[in-house]
Simulated scan of single mutants.
Amino acid sequence: MKYGYMRPTIADTSCDQQLKMLEPICGQVYIEEHDSAKDRTELLALLQNLSEGDKIVVGQLFTIADSSRHLMELLELLDRKGAYLQTLKEEIDTERKREYSLSKMLNHLVEFQNEIIRERTKKGMEYARKHGKASGRPRKADENVKKAIEMYQSKKYTLKDIKEETGISKSTLYRYLEN
């Protein structure tokens, strides 16, 4: 039997996109209510219900695992149960083991790691935005910039003096001077 598994992501918070991909090809779909790496009750239920020959289908590798270690643990468990994993985006199907070269698998692993980083970064930025925190490098106070420009244009101060007095670096000063 093919079982679908999905969980919310920043790009698909309601799992609608994943459901469109999995529902037509899976007999049953397990959906997590949250995107947290902890307390994955639906994944645990799915893993307990697996029988030999069953297959878990996910939209992408990042959906089922949160780290390389977690992925390896899941693959080992599936192997012990005689079950398989299929990912639609990466086109991985562990039932067809002999079709994958080492370079292809490494490429998938690198992309998997990038997806983890992207998702965690987006989550952090979304959390910060919801809590009123600005992202990016903090802006320098306008009075310090004005003072640094005046000091530079007076030609009486070195760049080192300007930085010590205002906290404005050479590159920041030049960036403001270009505008």
Rank of each mutant, 00 (worst) to 15 (best):
E126T: 15
V58D: 09
S169G: 14
K146F: 04
K160V: 00
L75I: 07
R80A: 14
V58H: 06
R137L: 12
V57C: 08
M125Q: 11
I117S: 04
H131E: 15
L109H: 09
E90G: 09
S154R: 04
L71F: 07
K156Y: 05
L77W: 04
T87G: 08
K155Y: 06
A83N: 01
L159C: 04
K163H: 15
R96K: 13
E111R: 13
P138S: 06
R120M: 07
L78H: 07
V145K: 09
S169A: 15
E91D: 12
L159K: 03
R139P: 03
V57G: 05
K81W: 11
I117Q: 07
I117Y: 05
N114P: 03
Y157P: 03
G82S: 07
K155N: 14
I64Q: 04
L61Q: 03
A134C: 11
V110Y: 05
G132W: 09
R137Y: 06
T172R: 05
E119T: 13
R137M: 08
G136W: 03
G59L: 07
L88P: 05
L109T: 08
G82D: 06
Q60G: 10
L106M: 01
K122F: 10
G132V: 10
K140D: 13
M105P: 04
R96T: 07
E76F: 05
N144I: 02
A65P: 01
K123G: 02
K89L: 15
T94C: 13
R98Q: 13
M125S: 12
Y100R: 06
E111F: 13
L102R: 00
E119Y: 12
Y152S: 01
L109I: 14
K147S: 06
Q60N: 15
G136S: 06
Y127R: 06
S68P: 15
H70A: 03
R139Y: 09
G132F: 08
D93C: 14
R118Q: 10
E150T: 01
E143K: 06
M72G: 11
S154V: 02
L159Y: 10
T166L: 00
E90Y: 11
D66P: 03
M151W: 03
I168Y: 03
L78Q: 04
H108Y: 02
A128V: 09
E119R: 12
L61Y: 04
L159F: 12
N144A: 04
K104F: 13
R96C: 12
K130V: 01
T158S: 13
L106T: 00
Y127S: 01
L109R: 03
K97C: 07
V58S: 06
R137V: 11
